[in-house]
């Protein structure tokens, strides 16, 4: 297993290189550039700007020096959009935000989704099943760009319970302010505050939760129908034990396949959530930089997403082998 992991990590490097080359070609081929906009500055000014960022070099030179800087200095270059920040700065600011609300979303989605799916499967065609199905389809029919404004209308404007947006340092802060809700001082220093986290987590996790519940339900039904579970039941083992000891593990296999990319999607954030709650997360940076052709930030975030995708898919494969020891790679 260790040699498998080592091999996969080694392959990650050329995979990322191909990703970089591909993305570079796509970016340069797409119309529009990072500078100018509605009123393009005089040619001399534009030339100055391009010289500053090395955009006057041939594409192949730009790509080569980019790769060199990334590999040898872990330097993703300066952001075109934010003159006083490098891409490393942008990611260092935005990624912790999405990582925080994304990880919580993943947790909520998995816990609620799996429970709902298992409950629906073992009580197939009862009211519990119908309720679970109703909830999950309802959740999917409510895209997050509809749900986010509804949440703000309800919890901020209507009830006044939660802030309608912002991040303000996020989950872990130095100390609670007097009026803060859902803020808990840690006796050993620092404080934990949930008020800015809740709405983004609900908005992001709901549809993932629904998908996980649906996959779990279907896969659980299949496993419950399989011979070895029928045998176990026939032996008179208690239901609870059959479910948790024997059925759940194999039933989770497709859920884990789904979770690999889904978790990457969650922790790298969603532009809808970032925009709706103005969290300053990386999802928004990615889309904005793509629209404004901030090549450096696009590349930085693409590499981040690529690395995480490779990592999580490796994790998925390791989990497979743990669930089903017969699997050999």
């Amino acid at each position: 297993m260790y040699s498998f992991i080592a091999k996969r990590l080694a392959i990650a490097v050329p995979t990322l290189l191909i990703l970089i080359i591909f993305s570079f070609i796509l970016m340069f081929a797409a119309p529009g550039g990072p500078f100018g906009g509605e009123r393009p500055p005089p040619a001399a000014v534009l030339a100055n700007i391009e010289a500053r960022y090395g955009l006057d070099q041939p594409y192949i030179v730009q790509m080569f020096s980019y790769v060199k800087n990334v590999v040898f200095h872990f330097d993703f270059g300066p952001s075109f959009q934010y003159r006083d920040r490098t891409v490393n700065d942008v990611i260092a600011q935005g990624f912790p935000v999405t990582l925080t609300y994304g990880a919580w979303s993943a947790l909520v989605a998995v816990v609620v989704g799996v429970s709902l799916g298992v409950a629906a499967a073992i009580r197939q065609n009862t009211w519990l099943d119908y309720l679970a199905v109703g909830i999950t389809i309802g959740a999917q029919a409510l895209p997050n760009f509809v749900m986010a404004p509804m949440l703000v209308l309800l919890f901020t404007l209507g009830l006044g319970w939660l802030p309608g947006g912002g991040w303000s340092g996020g989950l872990l802060i130095d100390a609670c302010d007097a009026g803060d809700r859902l803020c808990f001082n840690n006796p050993f220093g620092g404080a934990v505050r949930f008020d800015y986290l809740i709405l983004p987590v609900i908005a992001l996790s709901t549809s993932y939760m629904a998908s996980i519940a649906r996959i779990t339900r279907s896969s659980m039904l299949e496993v419950m129908n399989s011979n070895f579970i029928r045998t176990a039941m026939a032996k008179g083992l208690p239901m609870r034990r059959v479910i948790f000891r024997h059925a759940l593990k194999p039933a989770l296999l497709p859920v884990i396949s789904y979770l690999g990319p889904a978790v990457v999607g969650m922790i790298t954030g969603s532009v809808v959530v970032d925009v709706a709650f103005s969290t300053g997360g990386i999802g928004q940076f990615f889309v904005n930089s793509a629209f404004s052709r901030d090549y450096a930030v696009i590349m930085g975030i693409t590499i981040l997403v690529g690395a995480l995708t490779i990592l999580f898919n490796l994790l998925v494969d390791v989990l497979y082998a743990w669930i089903d020891p017969k699997i050999r790679y």
Partner: peptide, 18 residues
């Protein structure tokens, strides 16, 4: 200055007093 990319959200938060 809060940067809110969605003018509808900004309006809701104004009405909520934020």
């Amino acid at each position: 200055a809060l940067i809110i990319n969605d003018s509808n959200q900004a309006l809701t938060r104004y009405l909520a007093g934020e």
